[in-house]
Design a protein around this nucleic acid. Sequence first.
DNA 1: CGTTACCTGAAA
DNA 2: TTTCAGGTAACG
Length: 287
Amino acid sequence: MPELPEVETIRRDLTPRIVGRTVVEAWVSPDAPRLVQSETPESFCRRLAGRAVEELDRRGKYLLLRLDGGLTWIVHLRMTGGLIHLPAGRHDLPPPKADGTRNDCPDERYLRARFRLDDGGELCYVDLRKLGTMWLVADESSVVGKLGPEPLGEAFDPQEMRRLLAKRSAPVKSVLMDQHAVAGIGNIYADESLFEAGIRPTKAARRLSRVAAERLHWAIRKVLVEALADRGSSFRDYVDAEGEQGMYQLRVKVFRRTGEPCYVCGTAIKRIKVGGRSTHYCPKCQR
DNA sequence: CGTTACCTGAAA
DNA sequence: TTTCAGGTAACG
């Protein structure tokens, strides 16, 4: 579900609500045996209880909750995970909606873990597909050590963009989505960035000209900054830490616009598979 | 390098 | 019934 703009939105919203708070009790559903990767759920809950959250950071699509005592609680939401904060006095997620609307994932059916805080608030982890993962580790690099640069960071400059495209014979879209190349771009923002740069997703990464690589660098930053300003995209499941939707889905130019006219040239947007993922592009604007 | 498994539920 | 879904690791 969430890519960099969604995870960063959650990080920003959660920061004032949980930094300085202590986890007084942790619970992991027996129905989610794969959620905790670093140890058994029992051990995880025991070690987490009593720890204060000192800092909330993000690397790629990972949330890093730095705790007192030198441990880091790392969360990856994968496809349908979400973290919902309930302030003091509210202890229940909404019940399933009767009308069958799809943006209802943070309901009680999909509650997989909960974390009670010392101010009476609560952090709820919801995940329909149960693909999300958590770790409690002393060494963060054991989890996030091999990620590529942050696309909005200083280390990601046009030269770095060219360097990471060079020597890769895979389609440029697959390289953009490779978290070891650059961290945080997923299916939506890969398609949108390639449209913005006028590059065909299937083009071999190493075949991009210098100018094209530099345009792509600029496009990635533009798309991510705008998506962040819109608090991410909510196509089906994604909601922020308060259960609210993002707005960028209203601004996408190609993602899930199959058959609709390109806003630039009017040509019908095409959908193909690249690296097993649905890929959307304008056959005229993107060469 | 591309493909498949991991999960659940909605849409085609 | 089959396909598809904001992701990733483990395959061959």
